[in-house]
Nucleic acid binder design. Structure first.
Lengths: 225, 225
DNA sequence: TCAAAAGTGTTTCGAGTACACCCATGG
DNA sequence: CCATGGGTGTACTCGAAACACTTTTGA
């Protein structure tokens, strides 16, 4: 912990990157920014930035989510730290990556003149990403899928009230396979995580669905698959 | 990624810590060092050190395992990054923690004059640890348990040849509950991960047990529980 | 009355769990 | 011949998976 093998001092910068997912238009999408400055001009990447000297990395991630994506109160957890010495051409920067999940209704994308563009891009058709972000994206997707199977995090991708079909849709889109409706309902209801909102979805031109809420909007371990 | 919110430059050091587990004398044990220098004099901690400017953190972890514990060719994976601003009294240091697993037969502990002591300590009776290492220990144990349940990592805690009872013992000690012998054997053999070594353990004063080998000594996902 | 999604039960199959006795060896 | 751990099979239970039709609403 306290002894350095280097003879000179350490010159390494520490950043965070935020991988923000949402389900939107039938696809799992990640928030990406398109950069302006050389040498990464026009390339897409996850939002990120250096951490402050007295800031915990999770705080830094929340700050970046707020300033670069206008998002607050999201589910957030540390994903992994990426530290290949050559991952950034401009110098040694290690990045602590965070996984964030939001219901897409809660996000109002901020366009800023710092970036060429900001967009929700489908995980099935990602552009080439800057740095090692393609690898980061892969790790984030793997983490999301496994958390979906053994925790209740789906709450973080939905508004407080939702129908069972909407919830099932989250699972189908992320896990990328269809699920039997009857089995899904039996299972999710038997877990006891949901409470009826005693309301129905209205304004739809078919039979209105019952609305549900998660009893707890915080992480709980379960066994969904 | 490229814009710093700080006005002055970043002053954060980057270290790695290695949590090395082994099963030994019927207990799960971690390798700890007892420090000499103030302000951490006499306190126990996991081995660690700053990373070099051109060194990936995983390499740094391997270097530390080799120099501080005399261990090579171990299973190693990134655990998490710990970065509370006050975790080290001496200044801001973030630590990328690695989880390592070794068969205890492979380790010859090195005593060095850099530390007061180096020892395998039971996870059930850990002393107070320096820094935030108590929290690190908790995260490492949780990771180990879950990996044991859905991967074949048990290979990394055993020599190449072992008996089924020895393998079962690894599971019982780490998961901290007894397992039915017949069910365990049925399950582990049905996974097809093992091959008979066509040999028997000899020199024991009871019926000699058949020796097995893992077909692959590298990580594979399974479902053990 | 049509289109669209909501809602609902039963059967089958396989995996997990509980459980007790004989076997091979060394001392 | 005794002590010690090695090695083996069956029955039960429960959850996972497959599968199709009726209901409610708005247009």
């Amino acid at each position: 912990m306290f002894s350095s093998p280097s003879h000179d001092t350490q010159h390494i910068k520490v950043a965070v990157d935020a991988i923000i997912f949402t389900v939107f238009k039938g696809e799992l999408r990640a928030l990406l920014i398109q950069m302006k400055k050389a040498p990464y001009e026009k390339q897409w990447a996850f939002p990120g930035g250096l951490i402050d000297n007295n800031e915990a990395s999770e705080e830094a991630a929340r700050r970046i989510l707020k300033t670069q994506a206008g998002v607050e109160d999201v589910f957030l957890e540390q994903l992994a730290t990426f530290d290949e010495p050559k991952r950034d051409i401009l110098g040694r920067v290690i990045s602590i990556a965070y996984l964030a999940l939001v219901p897409h209704e809660h996000v109002q994308l901020k366009t800023t003149d710092r970036y060429m563009d900001v967009a929700w891009q489908s995980m099935k058709r990602l552009p080439k990403l800057a740095y090692d972000h393609t690898q980061v994206a892969k790790a984030a997707l793997a983490r999301l899928r496994s958390k979906l199977e053994y925790t209740n995090i789906a709450w973080s991708l939905l508004p407080t009230e939702f129908t069972l079909t909407e919830l099932q849709h989250i699972y189908e889109v992320i896990l990328d396979h269809p699920i039997d409706k009857r089995n899904f309902r039996k299972k999710i209801l038997s877990l006891g995580l949901l409470a009826s909102a005693k309301k129905k979805r209205k304004g739809v031109s078919h039979r209105p669905a019952e609305l549900f809420r998660f009893k707890e909007r915080k992480p709980v371990n379960i066994q969904m698959l």
